[in-house]
Amino acid sequence: MNRKIVNKRLDSLFKALGILTTVFGILVLLVLFIDVFLDGASRLSMNFLTSFPSRKPEAAGILSAWVGTIWIMAVTALIALPLGIGSAIYLEEYAPKNRLTGLIEISIANLAGVPSVIFGLLGLGLFVRWFNLDRSVLAGGLTLAILVLPVIILSTREALRAIPFSIREASYAVGATKWQTVYFQVLPAALGNIMTGVILAMSRAVGETAPLITIGALTYIAFLPQPPVTFSGGFPFMHFSLQGLFDPFTALPIQIFNWVSRPQKGFSVNASAGIIVLLGITLAMNSIAIILRYRQRKKTRW
């Protein structure tokens, strides 16, 4: 047969194969979404969001779960962001390129691939037992923080590396110190990409179940951690407290996991409704990341 015709057919074959694989992935996701939505949409209501879990499926809600998730995420972000961005800046801008830093780099890359349940075991041994934090918000937040830390370090380094060397040269050439160069030029230019990486890492952490179950987060909680700020009628009107950090907690994925494992039909409906909320949070976070990345790309063309 003519060589040209063979090449042409092969070309269309690969195109068709490519379309097939793409469609397959999207279809599976779509089926999952539709199935969950059909099951759980009827259960979504204000009541569902503002009720504590209950033995009766129709009265049960996810109040303690989503409040717990927000607590955990806040603690995780407060710990992982400064640590992760700080180490990335050091490794990328300051550290000498030698064997030791090479070893550190490989370790971080490997840590990013360690299964999350292992981090859960670490959290259980280190934070829950050794630091005696018990099954508290702080223990959960710390555990998720070390889980996302390697991912944040890697993505931040990538963002810093994307800033052209010529920008650094320009800064040094007008007499800037290293810190001024990093703080005034490199960091602002990389911020969009850093935030994108951080948000994606956090949106992964939102859905993490295994490490929280491993450290023994409770599944049935009928109270909320004490809020950090409370208001009262008398002087000084506002009260600050970190007691909430040491209160026990539950989180959305745990609540969902718990409901799925119950035999009653009503609870699996609740689980689907919970999944919709969790998917909504993840989707919202990812959208913010995409918008940030888009705006960054528009702003800077080197």
Binding site: I167, E169, S171, A173, V174, A176, F184, P188, A189, T300
Partner: peptide, 21 residues
């Protein structure tokens, strides 16, 4: 330098930077 390397900031800020630091 060989290739123009302005900071990805405003024209004003490009010049004010050296002064500020």
């Amino acid at each position: 330098f060989q290739k123009p390397n302005p900071f990805p900031k405003s024209i004003y800020e490009n010049i004010a930077y050296g002064l500020r630091i």
